[in-house]
Amino acid sequence: MSARPGVIRQALMVAQKDLLIEVRSPSRVVGLFFFALALVVLIAFTADASPGVLRKTAGGALWLGLLLASTRALDLSYAVETDNDALSGLVLWPVHPAAVFYGKAIANTAVLALVGTLLTPLVVALYSAPIPGGWPAWGQYAVILGLGSAALAAPGTFYALLTTRARASSVMLPLLMFPLVVPALLSASRATTLLMDGDGMGEVPGWVSLLLAFGLLHWSLEGLFYGSIVEDS
């Protein structure tokens, strides 16, 4: 019998499994993308249509769309696990609980970042919010997109497990997750808006470091606690 792979390898295998499911049923990512797109369009209707105002709303619209799409993505991410009680099977294999958490969080980060990437040209066009400053600015944008997706994915992956087993789960996930991710939403959308609307005072690095701090805190805390949650579910 071959040796059991280490925790990091296990996490990557779980991520690979989740991403393989996404690749084999691409309609899910496409559905998420159109869900987020519909939100982005609807948010534009609620704002003033003049380009100056839209440009200031663009970052918020993008991240609000991604946040709401993420709740759908997270429900789907656990729907495949609760069918046939696959999660218990995974934990009994035994895959380390932290590996399950990090694997699923990595996969959810990738899905969110992909949806965000697909959404970007549309937000730029619909909100007339081009990103000035050439490649360096786009590099910063990519960093914000990646960090922001990761910052939403960790608490999401954690709380989605709790709420799939709770009654009234579709209400519980936003109730638990939204107040918690306020710092991530705030810093990601501020940084994005500043990139699009001009960053006169050089505030982007500050917001990015706040996003990073939030991400590090939640990726470590929730990885630590996931074991006690999974065992009781």
């Binding site: 087993r165 709770a166 009234a168 789960s169 519980m172 109730l175 638990l176 107040p179 918690l180």
Partner: peptide
């Protein structure tokens, strides 16, 4: 939110 979680489990 935490308090409601308590009520739903």
């Amino acid at each position: 939110g935490v308090s409601l979680l308590r009520a739903t489990v």
